[in-house]
Design a protein around this nucleic acid. Structure first.
Lengths: 244, 244
DNA sequence: GAGTGGTCTAGACCACCAA
DNA sequence: TGGTGGTCTAGACCACTCA
């Protein structure tokens, strides 16, 4: 039931609706790519006006959790669609030309969480992890040395075979194989000098400057589910950031 | 007059209102920090409903051009307020502690636009520029070597004295002294090796990795008005980026 | 208490899409 | 042609601020 009364801590109706919609998304009532019920249907389900449902959906659409398509309906966002696959990739070519992206999986192994990773992923120290290292190649040139860590528990059975079946699209795989959708990420950027291992992988001199991108990705409820460190060669690529 | 008819290229009413509001902002009818008329007043001025004005304002507020304050009114955003001054600064301390920021002006001189700068700032090659170099110090440690270029014409009389009068708050100065408000910026990040001049200024070894942040700032109408290159030491600071 | 933004409603109509 | 999201209205009422 929806609380319309004057509660001690006031909460707008559309905000309550938003929570209900989010719960349906978490519960799997509507899966990634699905169309959700029309605004009018939802309004009658929740016993509110269409405008109120609309405002709740607007908010979720603004967070890229739902996608509105005029004339068609409102859909659950997914990392599976072409053009959205690289939603979190901000690295673009300086010349602006289209690029062919390739994946070379280096290792996929089990590990235990040290204190730092445990804290970041909200796990206990020593928790089981899966650790992936790979090389990303842009138009034939290796540009990113990627180090990815996820908790083992929710990603049971994740191995190199499965990664290659998904062509290295990690976010797409998380969704399809494990029902885990990343909705948000935070990145911390610094400049670092290439270590010998990375220099070799990217075919650089030792100490060459690299852009270090540390990313934590979050699923519903702001739960961190992936840690990632990308070391990027930025000779003819750059990281784009829009400030408003 | 407002076009409610079915025009060839359809444009929602609130979008037209948004344009009218923006024109009043550009024209200086409401200056930075001012309160604009209430939604009801604007609705009657433009002969539309309050809801339509509201949607136009919502959009401008979403772009940080206006600021709504419940119970008080809607205000023109400004870079002059405490806490908003550093709106475009994404560099934060790794430890998260508060920092004292200091400015050391190195040079302020005249220059001519080369082809690259001319293109970026939408000027003719050879156009008069003002060029500023400075050192930004965080809690006593020099961290950013800043190189700033603006067209001379709209910033007539900008010199080192005036910069120091404004304590190095460039955006605040642009507004107060020249009526030019930056509403948006694009940044391109790369990792570079410190040149000798920069290494000396920041007290580093030659070739040390630095985060290079190239920024173009835009005023109303997406007009580029400032180019800036910051070279940042990221030993215990990082650039924060939120992905949605 | 007066004025402001914020919420919510009910209903009309428009633009877009697919069958 | 029917269904979906998108716009617009008029009006009621609520929450916040300040004199």
């Amino acid at each position: 039931m929806i609380d319309k009364s004057n509660s001690p801590s006031y909460r707008p109706l559309y905000d309550q609706i938003k929570v209900l919609l989010t719960q349906s998304l978490i519960g799997g009532e509507w899966r990634p790519g699905d169309m959700i019920p029309s605004e009018i249907d939802l309004a009658s389900r929740f016993k509110v006006s269409q405008g109120t449902v609309r405002k709740a959906i607007d908010s979720l659409a603004g967070e890229n959790i739902l996608i509105r398509r005029q004339g068609k309906g409102t859909f659950v966002a997914t990392h599976n669609e072409e053009g959205i696959k690289l939603r979190f990739l901000r690295l673009t070519s300086a010349s602006g030309q289209k690029e062919v992206l390739q994946n070379e999986l280096l290792t996929c192994s089990k590990a235990k969480a040290d204190i730092r990773i445990a804290k970041v992923l909200e796990l206990k120290a020593g928790a089981a992890l899966i650790e992936v290292k790979r090389l990303l190649t842009f138009s034939g040139r290796p540009l990113i040395y990627d180090h990815i860590i996820v908790p083992a528990a929710p990603f049971k059975g994740l191995n190199s075979t499965r990664i290659e079946e998904n062509n290295g699209s990690m976010y797409s795989m998380y969704e399809t194989e494990y029902g885990i959708r990343m909705i948000r990420a935070e990145e911390r950027l610094t400049a670092v000098a290439a270590t010998s291992a990375v220099a070799e992988a990217l075919n650089l001199k030792l100490g060459a400057p690299l852009l270090s991108i540390e990313r934590v990705s979050y699923t519903y409820g702001d739960k961190p589910m992936e840690w990632r460190l990308g070391l990027c060669l930025t000779d003819d690529h750059h990281y784009m950031s829009e400030l408003e």
